[in-house]
Simulated assay, not measured.
Amino acid sequence: MSAAADNTAIWGRAEQQDFRSRVRGCLLGGAIGDALGAGIEFDSLAVIRQAHGQEGVTDYVPAYGRRGAVTDDTQMTLFTVDGLIRAQVRRDTGAWHPPTDVHRAYLRWAATQRDWGPDERKKDDGWLAREEWLYSRRAPGRACLSGLGDDTMGTLDQPKNPGSKGCGAVMRSAPFGLLVGWEPQLVFQLAAECAAQTHGHPTGYLAAGAFAVISHALARGEDLDGAVRKTLTQLAARPGHEETTEALQRALAAVREGAPTAERVESLGEGWTAEEALAMGVYCALVAEDIRHGLLLAVNHGGDSDSTGAICGNLLGTLHGETALPPVWLVELEGRDTILQLADDFAMEMTQGAALHSPAGSAPGWLARYPRA
């Protein structure tokens, strides 16, 4: 990553408020979509309709012992944000390698999947790793667990799980798109590098890069259709792009094929692989009449409902901001306070980071939350 990719330029008050709303929308929207799909993730469309009616689920259904529970998709997305904040803070030391900081954050997530709780977390792990509710296994993907099973960081040259193109990297990659001060090609590159830490197949990491760049355009105020078409241009220059490109092209084509239905969503795949999850989430966001309609469309199918719901929610939340999210779903969302706190910290770091830390001096409270070590 180039040190020229600075994201702490001077922002006006209105710009800061708009950006914070989009960051909150991205993280909360993704978590809502994740939670809507969590209780039906492994059910066929026929089973979903038999249990919940012809429209499928229209609200949260219990998962992991409660309504509004999130899965590993939201857990890992939050640790992506944590890693990006830590990367910015560490720049003051002269250390500037965001993939390393994101990898360390993912290792902290992996610890939540094997430890009983946060009691033995080190001070340098920061505040997110001490959130007790995150210490719960929510069907994490095998590639994520094995890719983070030791301290060795996968890279694009030497990726972890080189045959894996599951959706476990794409579903956590929306936060890279919130680096609005970066150029799109750097956003793509960083997301792809961090995806290769667990998913080494070109489709696995290119779909993550594509998702990040689409999200990046939305965070900058662009429309979704244009964002997807710009991303296709970027993808075309990447070796091994064909599966991801074809999946996004199918999503765009499906928009013109008639009214959105669960069957049309299923024509794009099941969502277990990266390119299918991306295409399904993008399609549902493209045809959404509003956030509620888009999210319910994204989860009511016989596939990886939580991941496609999360991707769609990330996109629609970034596009419309937090105030467009249905309040009835926010009320019961697991971890809402943590998500809001992290979103606001990210927005503050990106817009006012220079006031929080510098080589000359830093706010002790901020470094306690996001240690440089």
Rank of each mutant, 00 (worst) to 15 (best):
G147I: 03
A208G: 11
M350I: 12
A285M: 05
D304A: 06
L315A: 11
W116Q: 13
T77N: 01
N314L: 01
D306I: 09
V23S: 02
P202A: 07
L156S: 04
P175G: 06
G181E: 13
P260N: 09
G166V: 01
A14P: 03
T58E: 14
Q54D: 15
A208P: 07
S305H: 07
Q17C: 09
E183T: 14
N314F: 08
M348S: 13
L128G: 10
M280D: 01
A110T: 00
N314Y: 12
N300L: 11
D290M: 10
L28V: 10
P175L: 07
D72S: 09
P184S: 08
L45R: 10
F211D: 00
G117A: 11
D344V: 09
D72H: 12
G209Q: 07
K165T: 06
K160W: 06
E332M: 10
R49W: 05
G317Q: 09
A3F: 11
H357M: 01
D43T: 03
M350D: 00
L28W: 05
G200K: 05
D119E: 15
P371M: 02
W96C: 13
E322W: 04
R24K: 08
A288D: 09
L319A: 13
G309S: 08
D72L: 09
L134V: 11
A95G: 11
G126W: 01
A31Y: 06
D101P: 07
M1L: 14
Q249D: 05
L252Q: 00
R108I: 11
G37Y: 04
H320V: 00
S21N: 10
G12D: 13
S136Q: 15
I48D: 04
V282K: 01
E120C: 12
D18P: 00
E55H: 14
Y106S: 04
D124H: 13
E120A: 15
S362M: 10
V213G: 04
T231K: 03
S44N: 05
E276K: 02
Q88T: 13
Q113M: 15
A14M: 10
I10S: 12
Q185R: 14
Q17S: 13
P371L: 08
A207H: 03
E15W: 03
R22D: 10
V265Q: 05
G365I: 06
L286N: 02
H199P: 08
R24E: 13
A259L: 12
S21C: 03
F176I: 06
R336W: 05
A105Y: 05
V255C: 05
R91A: 13
T80A: 09
Q189M: 12
L45S: 08
T338R: 09
G240W: 00
Y370C: 11
A3Q: 14
A253D: 11
A285N: 02
P118V: 11
L190Q: 15
D304M: 04
G226W: 06
I10E: 12
P98H: 12
A46R: 08
H357E: 02
G56M: 00
E222I: 00
V81Y: 04
H52Q: 02
R114E: 13
S267T: 05
W272G: 04
R369L: 12
S173M: 13
E257K: 07
L232K: 06
D59V: 02
V255K: 10
A63K: 00
P326L: 11
